[in-house]
């Protein structure tokens, strides 16, 4: 399964890229699977934006530009686009 991940705000700062593609083996990809793979590729992202429960305070995830998700077990369909961003936007 292929998941496109777009980074915004601090997550983009930590990865140094605007987007990446994550391949997940198996029939179902969950948010945590994607986070795990991203953590391996982008250690700075993992250090500052993730903890054992998923995203740290101040960060959020959105699927396909539509719904925001927090549950690390949220399933993602093949071809989904996951946005990882700084939460509580604005000022």
């Amino acid at each position: 399964m292929s998941i496109r991940v777009e980074f915004y705000g601090i997550p983009r700062h930590r990865t140094g890229v605007a987007a990446a593609t994550v391949e997940v083996v198996g029939a179902t990809a969950r948010l945590n699977d994607v986070f795990r793979q991203l953590g391996d590729r982008f250690p700075d992202l993992a250090r500052d934006c993730f903890d054992q429960d998923g995203l740290r305070d101040g960060y959020a995830a959105n699927v396909n530009g539509e719904r925001f998700v927090t549950d690390a077990s949220t399933p993602l369909a093949d071809g989904s686009c996951l946005l990882i961003l700084s939460a509580d936007a604005g000022g």
């Binding site: 305070d57 101040g58 960060y59 961003l85």
Partner: peptide, 19 residues
Amino acid sequence: GSATDKYRELGTATNLLLF
């Protein structure tokens, strides 16, 4: 901590591209 990273590093315009 992490909740205010965005203000320190990029400022209030952090999410312009997200918006």
